[in-house]
Design a binder for these strands. Structure first.
Lengths: 160, 160
DNA sequence: CTTGTTAAAATCGTGCACGATTCAATCGTG
DNA sequence: CACGATTGAATCGTGCACGATTTTAACAAG
């Protein structure tokens, strides 16, 4: 533990790629979250969806997708699994039968609240970083993400 | 286009989560990479694997996994797809028949070199950020990633 | 009312990521 | 040499992410 005798992950071309750091950090987050969320019987994307629903319950699949940056082809099965677990309900909107509104059940709200009560603190500790550093990193990454999303649209509108 | 008239992705709890910024940035990177890599017939993880191989050809599956932070259950099928595409070869080591050595073919090397010739520049442009800012972000993220990986190991050795 | 169009969600096929397990080769010790 | 333990890779089942397509509902002329 005092030394990591694996000199293999330094100095390679991959380490110069920001995209790889993002990719690897995503994998690492997933692995830290997994044992924490297993106790609630949910996965990491499901956790994100539940947190999004907590903020604005009864949103449509599209609206949820807008927050999570996912389409219905990914969200529909995920939400159905949450429904099968009794954490959310899915109901067609009476005014517009095309849209499906997703809402937390009482059990679902309990799970999110309990998870939010302990998971973020555990994650914070796992990062070993100061809250203000994490916040700064969060701001940079959020702006990177929206640049990548808008940039793709811009090059479409641009000239191709 | 000058403005993004969707007020839906600001101010939510998710936006306060660093893990979500990492997750969303990863999705966004994937979407920018996809059309760029489609022309070479490879996926984003396959691209990362080829770049890793370019640095140290003939590495074992485990060594490659050490660089990419992946296990054989993920790498084996990925490498077999690269082999099916004629980009790498897989050979059992003569000294130790347990290990499989993966090497770029000439076609594979050509693909990586051509991809590296144009893709990184396109990605840089898509981020719309200055190289030094990206570099700083890369350093922060790399340290976050290794903290998350070591933190898990530390809590293993720590009190359990 | 009918027909063409748009919009939201769902469905399908492929590839990734991972926990758990299996299989074969190597090694360690007797 | 033998045999239990370890190691490296592969296999299997589940869930995610995505492109492409389909289905159903709403809407807009005519």
């Amino acid at each position: 533990m005092t030394d990591t005798p694996r000199p293999a992950d330094q100095g390679d071309a991959l380490d110069q790629f920001l995209c790889f750091s993002v990719y690897a950090a995503g994998l690492a987050f997933n692995r830290v979250y997994k044992p924490l969320l297993d106790r609630f019987g949910i996965t990491y994307p499901q956790y994100l969806a539940l947190v999004a629903l907590r903020d604005s319950n009864g949103r449509t699949v599209s609206e949820l997708g807008g927050k999570l940056h996912l389409e219905s082809n990914t969200l529909t099965p995920l939400i159905k699994r949450l429904e099968a677990g009794g954490l959310v309900t899915r109901n067609r909107d009476k005014q517009d039968e095309r849209v499906v509104r997703v809402a937390l059940t009482d059990a679902g709200r309990t799970v999110v609240d309990e998870a939010l009560g302990c998971v973020p603190a555990a994650i914070l500790e796992a990062t070993g970083m100061q809250p203000q550093d994490l916040k700064a990193l969060n701001v940079s990454l959020a702006s990177l993400g929206s640049a990548l999303r808008n940039g793709a649209a811009a090059s479409d509108a641009d000239g191709r």
